[in-house]
Amino acid sequence: MSADPPRLCLFNGPYLVLDGEPVPLADGAKRVLAFVALRESLVDRGVAARTLWPDLNPPAACGRLRTELWRMRGALPRLIAATKCTITLRPEVGVDMRDRYDWAGRLVGGTATEADLRAPPAEDEFELLPGWAETWVILARERIRQRLLHGVEALVARLLDQKRTAEAVEAALLVAGIDPLRESAQRALASAHLAGGNVADARRAYDEYRARLRRELGVDPSPEFAALVSSS
């Protein structure tokens, strides 16, 4: 038995980490674990079965879920807590997506620690379960993506308050690169450049954003953004 709590990774996953080593998962286990982890609470077994295997009739889908849970109990007994009606992850199982969601929440809520300021997400943490096309995954993917975008923008503002302009620029470049059409991200980048005294970089960032916005959407940046760089 592993000495460390298991950790489920959904970014670039899903896969399990035990004692610092990645553990591959069977396809059925991947689907069950991902679904339960994204719900973050007790999940009705019937709902899980119908969602995960929509092409099967309800009794067959429930049978498939029972089979997958039985397999996991044998191979990975410490992951799922199941009753006749519900399933959930055991409380000791860590989930990378939940950790990142909480990280962004602390930044947006103004309760971030110094450790939070030094731990921006990696670029690949903005796409949950890449390649999965199910509706329940797509919705969760966009939810965590938006949460992280807001979190990094709040990180930029916090770093600028502390006059850590180099770190602020780096964080702003991350969020602007993830969503090049997002004005709040581009404004964060321009603000970081201006805080460092790099007016030319700020105006270049604005000009590139304006050209992209006109080309792809046929609109201009907001007057507030224009005023930010023109007044510098």
Rank of each mutant, 00 (worst) to 15 (best):
S41F: 11
T165S: 12
P5S: 02
A3K: 02
A29P: 10
A61Q: 00
L107A: 03
A112F: 03
A166G: 14
T51M: 14
D27I: 15
G20A: 10
R106A: 05
L107T: 07
P120A: 07
L173S: 08
Q186W: 01
R50A: 15
F11N: 00
T111D: 01
E142V: 04
E92F: 05
R50Q: 10
R210N: 07
E123L: 11
L42H: 05
P22Y: 02
L228I: 13
T88S: 13
G196P: 05
R158I: 14
R66H: 06
P180S: 14
A133L: 15
I178V: 15
K30L: 12
L194N: 10
A104I: 11
D207I: 04
L160T: 04
D116N: 07
P14Y: 10
W136D: 12
D96P: 05
L33N: 09
L148E: 01
P130N: 03
L69K: 02
A195C: 12
N12R: 10
A202M: 01
P22D: 07
E142T: 06
L89N: 01
G177V: 05
L155W: 10
E40L: 12
W70R: 13
P221H: 02
R98C: 09
D102Y: 11
L16Q: 09
W53E: 01
M1C: 06
R203E: 13
P24Y: 07
L149G: 02
A226S: 13
A60V: 08
G196N: 05
Y209F: 14
E170T: 15
F35R: 07
R90I: 13
L159M: 15
D27P: 00
E125S: 02
E40N: 09
G94M: 09
W136N: 07
F225P: 04
N198R: 06
L89P: 06
T135N: 13
G177M: 08
A226W: 05
A119D: 15
R98K: 14
P59T: 10
R147I: 06
P59S: 10
T135W: 06
R141L: 03
E167Y: 06
G63D: 00
C62E: 12
P54A: 12
E125W: 00
P180N: 11
L89E: 11
P223R: 02
P54H: 09
T51C: 13
A26C: 04
D207E: 06
V219Q: 04
L128F: 00
P6K: 00
V47S: 11
R204V: 09
L173M: 12
A188T: 11
H150Y: 05
I144G: 02
L129A: 09
S230H: 11
K163R: 15
E40H: 06
V169M: 08
V23T: 14
R143M: 12
T83R: 12
L16R: 06
A202K: 01
E68A: 04
D179S: 14
A190L: 02
G105K: 04
W132T: 07
V199Q: 00
R145N: 03
D27Y: 07
A81G: 14
L139H: 05
P180E: 12
F11P: 00
D116E: 10
A104V: 07
I138M: 05
L65K: 09
G177N: 12
